[in-house]
Each structure stands twice: as C-alpha cells, then as structure tokens.
C-alpha cells in the first residue's frame, strides 16, 4: 500500500524545476530561500500536472515581462532623480509626446496583445474535456468538508481523493450549502462550487505524490480548515482505492474494536455519520468507512492520530470552533474503544 507517499504531504520539486526558479527568486528581492524553505508548500510554481504546469509557464512569461518593464520605469525614474537633479540643470518645457506614446502605449500594446494571445491559448487548453472514458469523481462541498464519491460507485469518503498518475480525471463539483472553491495549486487552478449548479474541472498529475488542496472561496466560520488531499498513484492503486470505496468497511477484529463499533452504531455518532456495512447511515457528517486511512481529521484541522481523534470526538469545538459536530457525551471508558475501532477502518 502506498501509505508512505500518501502520508507525505510534502512534495519536493525536481532539480530541473528548481533551477528555473532560482534566478527569478534572486530578482524577487533576495528570496532565494523561498524555494528552499517552502519546499513543503503546495506551490503553484512547483506544478505536478499539465494544468498547473501550463499556468506556471504563463506566470514566468508574465514575470519576466513585468521585470523588463519595471526596469524601464526604474531607469527613467533614476534618470530624473540622479541625472536631472544635478546642480545647474534647467527645467525643460517640451511635450515629449512620442516618448509617452511609445513607452506608455506602444510597447505595452505589443506586450499585452502577446500575453492575451498566450492566455487565450491556455484558457482553451484548460477547457479541454478529459474525454468520455476518463474516470469521474464527484466532489460536494459542505461547511466545512469535502464529500468525495466516484461516479458509478456507491460509497463515499471525505477530504481525500485519488487519481491515477498520467491520466486526466474529470471532477464534477457541487455545493451542498454555500459557495466553495476547489483548488489544488500543484495540479489545477480553481473552479468554484456554485449552489444550484454543477461545475466541472479535471485533474492530471504527471508524477506520483500527495498534493494539498484547499477551499479558496470564503465559506464562513471554518473556511480556514477546509483542506483536502489529492493522491496521485499508479493505476492499479487507484483501482484498489475505487474498489475499497465500493466495499463494506473492514469488520472489527479485536474486542476493543467490537465495543467501539457497538458504541458507534448505538450511540449518537450514527445519527450523522455512515459506516458502510454497519447500521450507521447518517448523512449529515462525512462517511467514516475509511477514516483510519485518512491524512487528517476535520479537513486538515489536525493530524489523524489517536490523541487528536479522541480530542475531536470529545469536543471538536476546541479543535475547529464553529463546526457542526457537537461535543459528544462519550463515556471516558468507551472512548479508547471508539478510537481503536475508527483507527481500524482503513
């Protein structure tokens, strides 16, 4: 199981990409450190797929053109401040309209028409349909988590979706309540989730890895904690993930897990959460059938480990204030069982 790649949220830039970023970084005001100290960032400048790759190239074009024009502006300004302020220089009263026209309109027009054309090409390319045979993943934005389903498969998961490396995957986006925006900086620019509408985008990764995504449209109290993970993996691992989504959750194997399941199904949990193959069928909160394998709790709020899980169940409001899960009156003795059961769901 590719647990390692999945757990590793950080993805490092390849050497080629690194070299292309260094020089501009120097220009960016001694920000050489940025590529080093931010290598864990889900950076749009460290693309891992064709969508974000296209936009990164566009960025560098825009960046260099901007730097060139900025140099031009600074040169004129320096001339005015350093050369023309020497003692004895006289004020000139001419109207250098040719200079203003060429520098202010002519050169910009050439640049702008060029970038507009390049931008148009990229806009068209990002709109390319992934084709009828591409897998379709259905993502629904909730306050404040992501419901993930695969078209044609009954099961659901949350805050994590898998794609096969090197293939385009269609993503169909819906909003359950308010607007959200689906953004995986390293793979694909944003598409908003619009209440009452269905939107589509696609994902494509050209190398395996885990890519962090986050809601980018302000959606209320916990907009800050609405992250998700896109795991790009070989096709067979992707197929296995889809198969797991279709299958019932693993049955409890130890006594503690059995007690935990009982507590889950008979307690308040099942009112909101579903676990496939058990009696729990709540639809309000995320489906927990594979919660043990997920990268985080609370859509990126805290890491997924026993301590955080227990804290979350007891009172998630201290972890993610304002979320819709009320504090749970779980008996302190039963909590370890519940944790053991949930952690076994992989």
């Amino acid at each position: 199981m590719p647990v390692d790649t999945r757990r590793d949220v950080r993805t490092r830039s390849g050497p080629g990409r690194r070299r292309r970023q260094v020089l501009p970084a120097v220009v960016l005001g001694g920000a050489l450190a940025l590529t080093g100290c931010s290598s864990g960032a889900p950076s749009a400048l460290d693309p891992a797929g064709s969508g974000a790759g296209r936009v990164a190239n566009l960025w560098w074009l825009l960046f260099w053109l901007s730097m060139a024009v900025f140099a031009e502006v600074m040169a004129v300004l320096a001339w005015a401040l350093l050369v023309r302020r020497r003692p004895g220089t006289r004020v000139r009263h001419g109207q250098p309209l040719r200079f203003v026209t060429v520098a202010g309109a002519g050169i910009p027009l050439v640049i702008l028409v060029t970038v507009y054309a390049v931008g148009l090409r990229d806009l068209a390319a990002l709109g390319d349909d992934p084709g009828p045979r591409a897998p379709t993943i259905e993502v629904t934005g909730h306050k404040w988590w992501w419901e993930v389903r695969v078209q044609g498969v009954d099961g659901a998961t949350a805050n994590e979706l898998h794609i096969p490396v090197g293939e385009k995957v269609r993503v169909r986006l819906r909003a359950a309540d308010v607007l959200h925006s689906f953004w995986v900086p390293q793979l694909m620019p944003k598409t908003d989730l619009i209440a009452g509408e269905v939107r589509e985008t696609w994902l494509h990764a050209d190398r395996a890895g885990s890519y962090r995504g986050q809601c980018a449209e302000y959606c209320g109290t916990q907009h800050a904690h609405m992250a998700f993970l896109v795991v790009a993996e070989p096709r067979k691992d992707f197929d296995a993930w889809v198969a797991r989504l279709a299958a019932p959750a693993p049955a409890p194997r130890t006594d503690a897990q059995r007690r935990g399941q009982e507590a889950f199904v008979q307690g308040t949990c099942a009112g909101c959460h579903a676990i496939r193959g058990t009696g729990a069928g709540g639809r309000i909160g995320p489906d927990l059938s594979d919660v043990g394998s997920r990268w985080s709790i609370g859509a990126g709020a805290v890491p997924n480990d026993g301590g955080h899980l227990g804290g979350w169940i007891a009172n998630s409001q201290t972890v993610k204030p304002g979320n819709y899960m009320p504090p749970q009156p779980v008996d302190a003795g039963r909590l370890p069982d519940l944790i053991a059961y949930l952690q076994s769901l992989k």
Binding site: A117, L120, R121, L123, A124, E200
Partner: peptide, 12 residues
Amino acid sequence: GIALLVLPPCLR
C-alpha cells in the same frame, strides 16, 4: 473577436 475565432461559445 479573436477569442470568438478560438473558443467554442459554450466551452466552460
């Protein structure tokens, strides 16, 4: 107008 030559009208 150039965009009209490049893009189909309803491509999203």
